[in-house]
Design a protein around this nucleic acid. Structure first.
Lengths: 218, 218
DNA sequence: TTAATAAATTAGGTTCGTCTAATTTATTTT
DNA sequence: AAAATAAATTAGACGAACCTAATTTATTAA
């Protein structure tokens, strides 16, 4: 089995690769993992020895197929446990991340699959992030940022790109709820604020920053 | 927070203290934790430094109040997760120990309490072991070993002292089930075998070893 | 294209939790 | 009580995962 630390590196590399391209820099990893760069260099060497990543000195790192499998497995665990915490234990969507960070490292494929079944094979976690299936296949999302919408466009709110508790709280307070329809009533040229019509005709005005963190589908 | 290793030491010390008296020997710990004696000596020094145990060189170790609190908290977690695995995910009682050994180290009092509530505040785990409450109070069990019974005595099967999967499987196969009544029909003087009447009048013969691992109440 | 800056690595150290081999302390047995 | 055995500790090492300070390698700017 892999250590928690290794698994956290794998997850971080996976996410950075998804977000920013093929190869991940030492400094990016150091930043997201909150360790110093030499620790990362150290760890990457060890992980390369275990064939979890391919690492070229001063050229960055990427996952091997084996590393990718492990990373996706952890993401599957994480998102399933988030669903459990929200659906079964009554946690709010802004409270579950840290707990899921612990639970994701429980090592048992069988447990993961039984949990999946218990939860009714959910397709997405409480933030709308897709849950990889038992084969490590992660459905490609077709959601787009609200910030790409024009006046009159509409869609369904299906995800966020900012997972911070403060942002999620702001959404709650303002009346955003996953699965609800959103329509763009207007976009102010001057400061790029969006006037939106939420479910129940409620109108709200949000900044570009917010529009750029909301994912809509259809 | 405490490391998993520390928590496992605390749990082991607690259990040995409960079973065999006040002070726990280095060698006993080494045996149950499956490490070598010098590792234990080392660890106990560190833990004494953290006021989790009182340790006197060559004289054994015992928990401080602080250490006891942590140990009981972990046992609470362990047993609640076992209930979850059996009641909600459909695991059998002989399959849950190793998973619960992982889950018990999730650090969140709030999660533990929400889980407790979700499970309906169970009093005992799937093996009949009592679950400490949120204040770390563990109900004193009045159950006694079947091996202390005389002919004609009867009681309710409420726990085991051997938690091994092989023993639990044997019980399943032979027709023992937690909560069922058991009556002693006879005890063979020669080899101390017990003839028992189980629920539904089924008669079975078990060895002293088995009788000495079953806990009965009332 | 050289100089300045930023990124990454090497070198050397630390703590945690483990090990083996050697030694000391306790407990039994004679 | 002395000798033999068993239990525990000390000494010295090691790997994992981290650190700081110094150095090297890449990248960007002049």
């Amino acid at each position: 089995m892999h250590s928690f630390t290794e698994e956290n590196y794998l997850k971080a590399i996976y996410k950075l690769q998804e977000a920013n391209g093929l190869v991940v820099a030492t400094s990016s990893l150091a930043q997201v993992l909150e360790v110093h760069a030499p620790s990362v260099t150290d760890m990457l060497k060890r992980m390369a020895g275990k064939k979890l990543v391919t690492y070229q000195k001063s050229k960055g790192v990427k996952l091997t197929e084996k590393g990718r499998q492990v990373a996706v497995g952890i993401i599957r665990n994480h998102r399933l446990w988030e669903v459990f915490l929200v659906d079964k234990l009554g946690y709010k969507w802004d409270e579950v991340h840290d707990l899921a960070e612990q639970l994701e490292h429980i090592h048992s494929e069988d447990l993961t699959n039984k949990l999946d079944s218990f939860l009714g094979f959910p397709k997405a976690d409480p933030h709308g992030d897709p849950i990889p299936d038992a084969n490590g296949i992660l459905p490609k999302s077709k959601a787009v940022l609200l910030s790409t919408f024009a006046e009159g466009d509409q869609g369904t709110f299906t995800g966020v790109t900012d997972h911070s508790a403060t942002f999620l709280n702001y959404l709650d307070k303002t009346g955003f709820s996953l699965g609800d329809p959103i329509k763009v009533k207007g976009i102010e040229k001057y400061d790029q604020t969006y006037t939106l019509q939420l479910k129940g005709k409620k109108e709200v005005v949000v900044s570009f920053k917010v529009a750029n963190s909301l994912l809509l589908s259809q």
